[in-house]
Design a protein around this nucleic acid. Structure first.
Lengths: 129, 129
DNA sequence: CAGTATCCACAATGATACTG
DNA sequence: CAGTATCATTGTGGATACTG
């Protein structure tokens, strides 16, 4: 609320609270978890990387997510420099999300997660998509 | 729960509830997230892979974690076939955790997370461990 | 040492209604 | 279309005390 130092327009969030777990441990894995962890963030990134980049599309592509959660997670990713948000001044309004360079830098993580998930689903006798 | 033999890789939990988000989406990334996601699981795996494999050691290596959370996360990982738990019938009691084959299969994910975390910490002007 | 058990504060999330 | 705002509910996690 009070102190908002916008240095470069890229990351303008106050991290002193958000990044507390990382500050405590200095563990890079913990930091990554804070940025792209959680229930929906990896799936959002995965979908945006596949070209599913509009709010409604994402919501349909992610069964179970609520508008509120989707909005919130999209904002987090945007504020942390993972996603771009482009607003087209049209009617009806159109918004498109895309990966930033840092967003693309997370894709190897997503890929190894997908690789493991496929194998693990198979182990469980389940069929992934 | 008596002195049960190590049943490596055996999954004896009822997943119908736990895996609901995956059942809904069939997304392998979501599945991986359910197995090794969350605040502490990646760090536990990372530490165990480095030889930090006893309860007390892990607790000291993970500032901020409570006994309750550590126990809970260790149990999840064990039940999902990521960790082995070996109990030595000694006094004082000794328990050692180790990675299963499936646990080792998650290490590429952890590595790419660490790689990203290092770079991202640098971007933030912070020093990782 | 390596946990369990219980209680509870508060954060996280869902449902619903409304808006530019 | 792409969100906000608000309230209700659920869940996560911390503190504390106890145990084989």
């Amino acid at each position: 609320m009070e102190t908002n130092v916008d240095n470069e327009g890229l990351i303008n969030k106050d991290f002193s609270e958000d990044l507390a777990p990382f500050m405590l441990t200095k563990c890079p894995v913990t930091l990554t978890n804070l940025i792209i962890g959680g229930k929906w963030k990896p799936v959002i990134i995965h979908n945006v990387s596949r070209g599913i980049n509009r709010f409604g599309e994402l919501q349909r592509a992610m069964p179970g997510v609520s508008k509120k959660m989707l909005t919130q997670e999209l904002r987090d990713l945007e504020h942390n420099g993972i996603l771009n948000r482009k607003i087209y001044a049209e009617i009806p309004p159109r918004v498109e999300y895309s990966l930033t360079d840092w967003g693309r830098a997370t894709l190897p993580i997503l890929q190894s997660m997908a690789h493991f998930g496929f194998a693990y689903a198979d182990k469980l006798g389940l069929k992934p998509a």
